[in-house]
Design a protein around this nucleic acid. Structure first.
Length: 434
DNA sequence: TCTGGGGTCCTAGGACCC
DNA sequence: TCTGGGGTCCTAGGACCC
């Protein structure tokens, strides 16, 4: 949204940024409370029954048994233990031996997310879902309905707590960037502003706090003597260009609170669809890799067909045991067919694989277009039709009887321990994307 | 203590065409 | 043997976000 300021409309743009506090953990906790589940914890040597995970050191993420994976979301009582989002489960448990670990259930979190977005539409028809737990609301011209921006933000915040039982933080600003930066000023369950004349609040923050100054950019800025967002705002942008090229202006504008991007109520169609998985053992054989790839292609293909989308580019990603990632991609005729995707993926893997132990594999479909626009099938129409019918009947059976009801023959090996391991991360669990 | 999985955008370099 | 330039498309990799 360009900040419209003409002689007819002098109203200043007002944007809210809504951020769910410890989203996955709060939602996981609510879901368990609904089901009447309790957790037994030891406090001062006494066993206690706790129903709200938010009251104890707890996290969402990974596998509690193998302790593999990372912390996706953590409760407030984790704070004294200095547990960080993104750190390994192993490390988190070391810091806090009594830590409660809940595996992530994304399907459930998506429902809570949908409820949140629907609720926000009570306050404005211009709501942009930014991620599963964040949204922007354009509040411009809405004061006569719900009061001043602060009043309305508090109404939203209190309303969400009362209606759903989880808390949010809200940032109020003249654009999306400042609204988002405001949200981070104080958490949880607060309304913060970064309005005209208040940018000093943001300038005091360390440079790492700036949106888009990530783990590669922030150290480079520090090297230039920039320690705070204010330092960057006052820095001569010309001296950034040798290091950051066109990105210089993005960074400098953000540091100065400049952002004219619109609140986009209609989420644009996805540009790519992909699935990846970390394998519980290092893959060193083609047939193991291929089984994983087929698994991933099943999931990607299903998602393409569900959204009436065909892909004109397929890529695979490989992460080895040294955590080095590399990829390979290729253009292809538009397809949503699992077998076709798999044939491309397997070929790409054969071409790219450096024979290193593979820890993670991914398949991504790119250059998407609407499959209903009519496909140009220059050859093999009969085979294409056959494959489409096969996909359609598999999808239909799965819709009626569940994902596990149809299994491709290559999943159905009996011997070998690793087959059981492979079964554990069926791609059908994957919910994919936002 | 070994680090998930979903995305988007940008850039450099090479192929290819005129 | 030495010799252009412009434009477009493609791929690989890297940055960022949640």
């Amino acid at each position: 949204m360009r900040n419209k300021s003409n002689i007819f409309s002098r109203t200043k743009t007002v944007v809210f940024h809504i951020d769910v506090n410890s989203a996955y953990l709060a939602w996981e906790s609510l879901e368990r409370m609904k089901a009447g589940e309790v957790v037994t914890v030891v406090v001062n040597g006494h066993e206690c029954q706790i129903s709200d995970l938010r009251a104890i050191p707890s996290i969402v993420g990974g596998d509690p048994e193998t302790r593999r994976g990372i912390v996706l979301s953590k409760s407030l009582p984790c704070k004294p233990y200095k547990i960080q989002t993104g750190e390994s489960l192993m490390s988190a448990v070391k810091k806090c031996p009594g830590l409660f670990i809940a595996p992530a259930r994304f399907g459930i979190y998506e429902r809570y997310s949908d409820d949140l977005i629907a609720y926000l539409h009570n306050f404005s028809d211009r709501v942009q879902q930014y991620s599963i737990d964040e949204a922007f609301v354009d509040y411009t011209h809405m004061e006569r309905h719900f009061g001043s921006p602060m009043e309305a933000a508090d109404k939203i915040r209190n309303g969400i707590r009362d209606a759903f039982g989880f808390t949010v933080s809200i940032g109020v600003g003249p654009n999306k960037l400042l609204a988002k930066m405001a949200t981070g000023l104080r958490k949880p369950d607060f309304t913060n502003t970064l309005l005209e004349g208040e940018i000093g609040k943001m300038w005091a923050l360390p440079i790492e706090e700036l949106f888009m100054a990530g783990r590669a950019t922030a150290p480079k800025l520090r090297k230039l003597g920039i320690q705070t967002i204010g330092d960057l705002a006052r820095f001569d942008v010309r001296y950034l260009v040798p290091t950051f090229k066109s990105f210089s202006h993005v960074l400098w504008n953000y540091a100065n609170g400049i952002d004219d991007s619109a609140v986009e109520p209609h989420h644009s169609a996805a540009k790519s669809v992909g699935n990846s998985t970390t394998i519980p053992f290092d893959v060193t054989r083609y047939d193991d890799a291929n089984r994983v790839l087929l698994n991933l292609c099943e999931s990607v293909g299903k998602r393409l067909r569900l959204t009436h989308t065909v892909a004109s580019s397929v890529s695979i990603g490989i992460r080895n045991s040294d955590f080095i990632h590399y990829s390979h991609q290729r253009r292809c005729s538009p397809t949503d067919n699992t077998t076709t995707l798999y044939n491309h993926a397997a070929q790409l893997f054969r071409e790219a694989w450096k024979r290193d132990p593979v820890r993670q594999l991914g398949v991504r479909a790119d250059k998407l277009s609407d499959s209903r626009m009519g496909q140009l099938n220059l050859f093999g129409q009969e085979e294409t039709d056959r494959q489409m019918r096969l996909d359609a009947s598999i999808d239909s059976i799965r819709r009626r009887f569940g994902d596990e009801s149809v299994m491709r023959a290559s999943f159905l090996c009996k011997d070998e321990k690793r087959d059981h391991t492979l079964d554990r991360f069926s791609p059908f669990r994957s919910t994919g994307g936002l």
